[in-house]
Amino acid sequence: MAEFFINGFLVFLLAVIAIVAIQSIKVFSTVMLAGAYSLISAIIFVSLDAVDVAFTEAAVGAGLSTVLYIAAMKHLPKREKVVNDNTFFALVVCLVVGCLLVWASFDLPQIGDPMAPIHQHVGPYYITNTKTDMGIPNLVTGVLASYRGYDTLGETVVIFTAGLGVLLLLGDGRNNRDENE
């Protein structure tokens, strides 16, 4: 029961952060709020048994991306000029999408239900076979590195792509601008 309340509180915090992020006109604090959001999500991940994900989220989601934001913010205006002409449209879109998701949720298996399809199919295979196939106890690592290793290759390529993109946009792009001028 305690877990329930802790989780409830954390989730409540998330909601508060998200709403403050909408309201705040200081871009910098929004960025910091996003970091906090990631961090709290990481804690929730721990409580949901996803330790590896929590580590990654804390390190990459909360850490790395906040660093990126802060680095970028050095060159960017700190305040937002508030214009509210999109609010209605955004509200409608979000309501429609949200209602669709709520409607969908009625047929979702209940959280934690061990009889849910995902715990019956594919998942158990990893739990029973990883040890014999790979010989490592961490199932997540096992699946990541082997069964779905190809995803991980793709992930590496994504990082490479993004890195190359940043290099192209900021490294060369700027210098050449200067050359031209």
Binding site: L100, L101, D107, P109, A116, I118, H119, H121, V122
Partner: peptide, 26 residues
């Protein structure tokens, strides 16, 4: 969440067992 699989062919097979499922439609 309603099938437990990510393989598209397998997914198709599993989905064909379900009828009138909100989550599937959404």
């Amino acid at each position: 969440s309603i099938t437990g699989t990510l393989n598209i062919a397998d997914l198709t097979l599993k989905l064909s067992e379900l009828t009138d499922n909100n989550s599937m439609k959404a």
